[in-house]
């Protein structure tokens, strides 16, 4: 009986470890100080290959990067007190040059009640704010 319990415990532990491994893989980074495109490229290599998902807080001027879903970055920032309205999802392509390296495309951006009906960001001022924050924090 004791043996059975310990086998069961080992089984449970293995399940938990699997879960923890997944969590570890999905660890995000909150960017508050400058990071390099090279660091982003390494993140991209480990997750999607050519892009890093990111969520920008245009009020606090911080970015959550490296997540499987934009929702996860949103959750991280909401948990740190960000206002939902201030959060926008983008994709960063660290190997691209020029404007194309920031892609305004995320499901979390669809906000009918803010007249943003697409995955992009309609408001040019918001896009400019995001470009400025990304430029300040990634170099």
């Amino acid at each position: 009986m004791t043996h059975r319990i310990s086998v069961f415990k080992r089984y449970l532990k293995s399940l938990i470890n699997d879960e923890l491994c997944c969590v570890k893989l999905k660890k995000m980074k909150l960017v508050t100080k400058k990071i390099t495109k090279k660091e982003l490229a390494e993140m991209a290599g480990k997750m999607f290959g050519n892009l890093v998902k990111a969520v920008v807080d245009i009020e606090k001027k911080v970015i959550a990067v490296d997540m499987p879903m934009h929702a996860d970055g949103e959750k991280l920032l909401l948990g740190k007190g960000s206002r939902q309205e201030a959060l926008w999802g983008i994709n960063l392509h660290p190997n691209e040059t020029g404007k194309g390296w920031i892609e305004f495309d995320s499901m979390i951006n669809i906000r009918p009640h803010f007249d943003n009906l697409t995955r992009g960001i309609n408001d040019s001022k918001t896009r400019e704010k995001i470009i400025k924050i990304v430029s300040d924090l990634v170099g």
Binding site: H70, A71, D72, E74, L78, I108
Partner: peptide, 16 residues
């Protein structure tokens, strides 16, 4: 706040 992870994912997955 413990519900945030699921709710934000639901929002994204519904859009998807």
């Amino acid at each position: 706040p413990v519900k945030l992870k699921e709710l934000t994912r639901v929002y994204e997955a519904l859009g998807d």
